[in-house]
Design a binder for these strands. Structure first.
Lengths: 346, 346
DNA sequence: CTGAAAGCGCTAACAT
DNA sequence: ATGTTAGCGCTTTCAG
């Protein structure tokens, strides 16, 4: 068994080369590899030997082209620095394995050019993936629309309202309501709520808006802090600190854990302590170390949502056009911690 | 401008359809889209109109097949739940954008079957990506070897020793040395070091082994705690707790922040507090909230490593075979915090 | 500046 | 059980 590879194959081995080496036709190689058709054991082993002798790996592009279908699903993900997406990606991979599907992941460009935001989408479409999982709020459903007749699409982990797109997501209204009640039940009546713009993050916008409304309905004095930027770079922290120092609020509601973390870290450096000076609660529950930091949050069911999304796309792949479009959403579970403390109402 | 899409395109538009709609040949469509050749303005605009009329997106597979090359690079990543990989993926994307490269990411299967661990690699090879970034320790360099003549490969963020594979990684020996000296300089002399098996994580193994050796050379009493499992599931915590309770160690060195976090969280629940009862230091520095948790660590230069890796692969794409194989490694920076406290030597 | 035609590597009838 | 052949959608000579 030579273990020196060919000096300069230069080009990846082709099926024709394998066929030649095994003294069979290309079709036979294909049959052996696909395993769909009976092949005589000797031929079979000759082929397999040639395959790994030559280090042959079939060209997926050519396969897709010839067969007209694809075993892979595309995952469009926003920014993997966010642990929520990291977990999602990992879980999608896990369930796709289970269903025998290959996942290819693409991420939108960072540049904010005109149509640039859809290049990742076009990349996946160009690959002719069998199905598409959209987990990025950056891509608008209207951009998806034109591809809908062509490829099954599932919107995952983001609020989906388009009746033509299957959605598997978190119940953000319920999330916000749970959070609002938790804060209220702890006796807080003057509350700051951070609200990102909906074009930045629809999910976070809903969380903020709904939490604020619910609290208002409960008779609280709510201060909305509008956020305009995309990142979590501490926007709104200064405004919030001012409110706290003026004793205008006793609690703050953050639409995402990372924002909450950013705030508490900054606040402590300038002498404002949680929960001594203010109670806080976030949303996601995915960030590691939350319990160690004693930060209250709401854990969204990423695992469940990922699983359902893969299940749905798998069934769409199996019976195209047969799957009824629905919008599923799943509720999270409150994870209380010492950052949200009881307080005499008032 | 009709904005109702065709009722049932069913199949993605082809270049031939675009050509027909624009009353030109397929070659002309190709030329317009590639932009490489001059085309008369009128023809050009007719083609472009047809393109977005039909929502045409070129098949990357067919392009690759016909042209024999590919604009995309494959990124093989271990597990995106780990924030280090999340950040890496994000940074690779960012720099690839800069170089006009498309990134497709694949992740190894979770199953631990025989050859299963290389399916993601085969997936990427099968796509005939123009270059490969390997950021997963799960794939061994020997598995890569056979593809080396065929596609440029850069090992990124993992210790690479094979002389045939370009490596851009962290200087784990330096990391470990910095950590060891930090612990020593804080007066600790009886120290526990957690050491994962090298087949689980080579990087973490080196960190542990080297830190332990350096501390021993400095005359410390070092207890190695061997870790055998892949995850961060608190392995070794019990053993470490016992040492602490017996007052056999005053400090613990963790080869990764997540392990440290897992420990401190668990420890606190059972009444062992950091840094009161034991000092700790981790490695990575990527986990969010480290500073808030006051956990000492060493920040590895993920951004720099990602950038270099993309630069290298880009230059390999440009002049194949011309790039001299090297192993670059970059040092991290210590980020001290209150979890590592001064102590009377002894 | 544009069209015709020859493949790229593979699958899927269709033969044998 | 195996070989032959016709494309799949695209790029790229080569002619015009």
């Amino acid at each position: 068994m030579m273990d020196t590879p060919e000096p300069h194959p230069r080009h990846p081995a082709t099926m024709a080369e394998v066929a030649r080496a095994a003294r069979v036709s290309r079709a036979t190689v294909s049959r052996v590899l696909s395993g769909a058709v009976e092949v005589s054991p000797e031929t079979r082993s000759r082929v397999l030997e040639a395959v790994d002798q030559l280090g042959y790996v079939p060209s997926i592009g050519a396969q897709q082209l010839a067969a007209g279908r694809s075993q892979s699903i595309g995952l469009l993900i926003r920014d993997s620095r966010n642990p929520v997406y990291g977990l999602l990606q990992s879980q999608v991979q896990k369930w796709a394995d289970e269903f025998g599907l290959h996942v290819v992941t693409a991420m939108p460009t960072f540049y904010r050019g005109a149509h640039q935001e859809t290049t990742a989408l076009r990349q996946l479409i160009g690959m002719r993936v069998g199905g598409l999982l959209i987990a990025s709020g950056v891509v608008r459903t209207e951009d998806l629309q034109q591809f809908l007749p062509t490829v099954p699409v599932v919107s995952v982990g983001r609020p989906e309202e388009h009746p033509g797109v299957y959605g598997v997501s978190y119940d953000e209204r319920d999330n916000a309501t749970q959070i609002a009640h938790a804060v209220y039940d702890h006796g807080h009546r003057r509350i700051a709520v951070l609200v990102p713009r909906s074009d930045r993050s629809l999910a976070e916008n809903i969380r903020g808006e709904v939490a604020a409304s619910v609290l208002e309905e409960l008779g609280c004095d709510v201060t909305r802090i509008q956020l305009r930027l995309l990142g979590v770079g501490g926007e709104g922290n200064a405004e919030l600190l001012k409110l706290i120092r003026a004793d205008a609020v006793t609690a703050a509601v953050f639409p995402a854990d990372r924002r909450m973390l950013h705030f508490v870290d900054h606040a402590r450096r300038v002498g404002v302590h949680v929960p001594r000076d203010v109670s806080v609660i976030g949303c996601d529950g995915v960030l590691e170390g939350l319990s160690y930091m004693e930060l209250a949050s709401l854990r969204i069911p990423v695992e469940l949502v990922s699983r359902r999304a893969v299940e749905v796309i798998a069934s769409m792949l199996e019976s195209p056009g047969e799957v009824e479009i629905m919008h599923e959403s799943y509720t999270g579970t409150l994870e209380l911690a010492n950052s949200l403390v009881k307080r005499e109402a008032g």
